[in-house]
C-alpha cells in the first residue's frame, strides 16, 4: 500500500526495459557520488601497512585500525586547526544569523523608515559583488589582517540568505503581529516571541548555509591569516593538495608513521565529518528554503 503511489492512468505501465534502464542510471549516479567517500573512509580506517601494500588505497579494509586517527590527535597541527575551524564556525554562524535576521526582519516590515533605500543598497550588491583585490585592501586598511574577525566580518551577511529570510518573514501573517501589539508586546517581543518561533525552518536552513560556508572556507584564511592560524581546510590544502608533510607543518607524531596516505585520508574524513553529521537533520528543510528564496529573487 504505502509504496504504491498513485500512478496516473495516462502514463500506462512502464516497460521492463525502461525500468531497468532507470535503475541502472540511478545506481550509477549514486555510486559515483558515494564511492569516493567510501574509499577515503576505508583507507583511513585500514591499518597503515595494508594501505602501503595495496599502493595507497583500500576499498575494503581487512581490519579496522585507528592508528591514523590517534596519530593525528597526538600532534598539534590538526588539533589546533580543528579548534580554530570550530570556533570560527560557531561564532561566525551565530553572528551572521543575528545580523541577517535583524536586517531581514526590518526590511520585511512594510513601510519601515528607510526600508526602500536600504533594500536597494543591498540588492545592488548582487550586481557587483566585491572583487578580490579591493576586498583585501578593505580588510587590510581596517587592520584586520591575521585576526579572526577577518574570517567573519567580510562575509557577515550573504545577500542570498538575506533575501530568503526576508521572503519568509513577509509570509508571517500581519494579523498575528497586530494581535501581539494589541496585547501590549513591544517590537522586540514581537520578533522573539511571535515571528522567530514561526520561522524555525528558515533559521535552520540559513544557519546550515552559514555554518557550511564557515567550515568550508579556506581562501580567506590563506590571504588574511598567518599559517599557524589556519583553519582545518587551509591546512588540508597544504597537506593534501600541495603535498606538504605533516612533519613540515609541525606534527611530529604523524610523521613517524610511514603511511602518510592513511593519515591524509583520516584528515579528509575529519574535515568532512561535521557536515555529514548535521546534513541529515537539516536536509529536509532545503528545498523549501531554496525555493522561497529563488521565487522572491
Amino acid at each position: 500500500m504505502a509504496s504504491k503511489v498513485t500512478r496516473p492512468l495516462w502514463m500506462g505501465l512502464p516497460k521492463w526495459y525502461t525500468r531497468l534502464a532507470k535503475a541502472i542510471a540511478l545506481t550509477i549516479v549514486v555510486s559515483i557520488v558515494v564511492f569516493p567517500f567510501w574509499t577515503i573512509v576505508a583507507t583511513s580506517i585500514a591499518s597503515p601497512n595494508e594501505v602501503i601494500e595495496n599502493g595507497g588505497w583500500v576499498i575494503w579494509p581487512s581490519a579496522v585500525d585507528l592508528t591514523a586517527y590517534t596519530s593525528i590527535f597526538k600532534g598539534e597541527v590538526i588539533t589546533r586547526a580543528l579548534l580554530i575551524s570550530g570556533g570560527v564556525t560557531v561564532l561566525g554562524t551565530a553572528t551572521s544569523l543575528v545580523a541577517t535576521i535583524a536586517l531581514a526582519y526590518a526590511l520585511a516590515r512594510p513601510g519601515v523608515f528607510g526600508g526602500k533605500p536600504v533594500l536597494l543598497l543591498v540588492l545592488f550588491t548582487f550586481l557587483f559583488p566585491p572583487a578580490m583585490i579591493p576586498s583585501f585592501l578593505v580588510v587590510k586598511e581596517l587592520g584586520l589582517l591575521n585576526s579572526f574577525p577577518a574570517l567573519v566580518l567580510p562575509v557577515l551577511i550573504n545577500v542570498f540568505n538575506l533575501v530568503i529570510m526576508r521572503g519568509f518573514f513577509q509570509g508571517v501573517p500581519t494579523e498575528l503581529i497586530e494581535a501581539a501589539r494589541l496585547d501590549g508586546a513591544g517590537e522586540f517581543r514581537i520578533l522573539t516571541r511571535v515571528v522567530l518561533p514561526l520561522s524555525k525552518s528558515i533559521v535552520a536552513v540559513v544557519g546550515l548555509f552559514y555554518a557550511v560556508s564557515y567550515w568550508n572556507a579556506f581562501f580567506n584564511a590563506v590571504i588574511y591569516m598567518d599559517a599557524h592560524n589556519y583553519p582545518v581546510q587551509a591546512v588540508l590544502r597544504q597537506y593534501v593538495t600541495q603535498g606538504a608533510a605533516l612533519s613540515d607543518l609541525g606534527n611530529a607524531e604523524a610523521s613517524i608513521l610511514n603511511s602518510p596516505q592513511s593519515v591524509k585520508m583520516a584528515v579528509v574524513v575529519i574535515a568532512t565529518l561535521p557536515i555529514m553529521l548535521i546534513y541529515p537533520f537539516v536536509q529536509r528543510f532545503f528545498v523549501k528554503g531554496v525555493l522561497t528564496g529563488a521565487i522572491k529573487s
Binding site: P36, N216, L236, R237, T241, V268, A271, T272, I275
Partner: peptide, 10 residues
C-alpha cells in the same frame, strides 16, 4: 556541501 579542498582530495 563539501569544500573544494576535499573534492580535489577525493
Amino acid at each position: 556541501f563539501i569544500s573544494w579542498v576535499i573534492v580535489v582530495a577525493l
